[in-house]
Design a protein around this nucleic acid. Sequence first.
RNA 1: GGUCUCUUGGCCGAGCGGCUAGGCACCGGUCUGCAAAACCGUCUACUCCAGUUCGAAUCUGGAAGAGACCUCCA
Length: 488
Amino acid sequence: MELQVYNTLTRKKEIFKPINPPHVGMYVCGPTVYGDAHLGHARPGITFDIVFRYLKFLGYKVRYVRNITDVGHLENDADEGEDKIAKKARLEQVEPMEIAQFYTKRYLDAMDLLNVLRPSIQPSASGHIIEQIDIVKKILDAGYAYVSGGNVYFDVLKYHNDTHKYGILSNRVIEDMLQTTRELDGQKEKHNPADFALWKKAEPEHIMRWPSPWSDGFPGWHLECTAMSAKYLGDKFDIHGGGLDLLFPHHESEIAQSVCAFGHEPTNYWIHNNMITIAGQKMGKSLGNFITLEELFNGTHKLLEKAYSPMTIRFFILQAHYRSTLDFSNEALTAAEKGLKRLLEAQRNINNITPSNNAAELDIKALINNCKEAMDDDFNTPIVISNLFEAASIINKIIDGKEKINSEGLEDLKALFNNYLVDILGIKDEQTSNMMPTIEGLVKMILDVRQEARMNKDWAKSDQLRDKLAEIGVKIKDSKDGVSWSLD
RNA sequence: GGUCUCUUGGCCGAGCGGCUAGGCACCGGUCUGCAAAACCGUCUACUCCAGUUCGAAUCUGGAAGAGACCUCCA
């Protein structure tokens, strides 16, 4: 089966065919770095990490570009000329670039903890002002933009009349939009309310500014992605991704910009992840109902009953398909945590299995095949996980002596977990830290003492040791073959 | 108001015409000095109404509810 991806542009699943195999170019809209990353940021980070990982697994050579938006864009719809990063900088009395650097680092740290692979290139908007100005010039030359009071605006109506393309991605009818667009402040310079800025003149108090042929100012909201994707992936590349909330106007406008600047649409496949909701409502910075990743990892948010590890968050997100909304709750997160633990314990137990020669065949290959088909079907990670649970159940039965496996089956089992759980889903065993050798030694020592007590039928002492260990998070399991333990 | 999407069991969440998804929780059992884990088993579903079909959670029409986008947002 070939990889099929759901293309937002055509609204159906399509067989993935790269322009220039084995190379694949993928551009994903990254964060605006004026605040800590929250649970919502984890979704696209992980979604496109999966795409990245799976394409590589399939043998493609992927160049993955994810931008850092450090030109903060406007704070609100009134053209006050102050952007988010500049505002934060003013409030904290630091350089805007300090704000951007600070939150960029924190964003990347959080993504690292989530085991999100670093993209091939992470360009920043502020580092590509020249390229953005160049795109503005191209669009002006093509006749689809106009200068007005030091600003440059994209002429949406002219573009639409000539190409009939404004709205192809978001399925919007421009005539409707023109009627419903509200009266906004500072719109005088625009020919039409639907027009969007390519270049904005900076007000005197606006501290983030660059020189341009039109004014000292800053680039428009949608320009950086057009400029940077074209620079690093070419003006026609394979995949463009981002959150569903960016569909309109951001991605729609990117298409318009590319068509005018380069004569064609920027990408073949548009992939959008859905939102994470909290109590059924979108979690978002502007809604103030978000939980930062740090709070999640520490358990410090008032909505959290406890801390959740980065892998729990990752697993939680992967248990839903990326195009579905995913509702946050303590119950759901706890369920994910327990399920993940079970899966990881099964994975560890693979190493304790001794294959039997005369074992009947267990059809591990079917599970591997299921996983492959699930990933090929628009990255259906929940199905992959359900198959891994099937495998976990088989492993447990073998460990329990209720099932046997031959060496080929065992190898398949190892491959299944290594390929799908570790490499593709990117789940790592957080227990395997560098402290482990020490802890292992200590626990073994204590268990030896306990074993002695048990030999003497000193149950009180045995239980006391078990309870004390449990208190510090070491769980003991007694079985016929001996004692095993795990960290809680 | 316009455009679009969603509504699955106690909770989360797949499925998209016929075949028990899966996880968590609950309950019963096996195992165990006890406990935990593990294993086995059981129980809860497709918002409502009408239609198409031999057959619908899955297709069509209608109703109700929820959400997203239309303004920066992942």
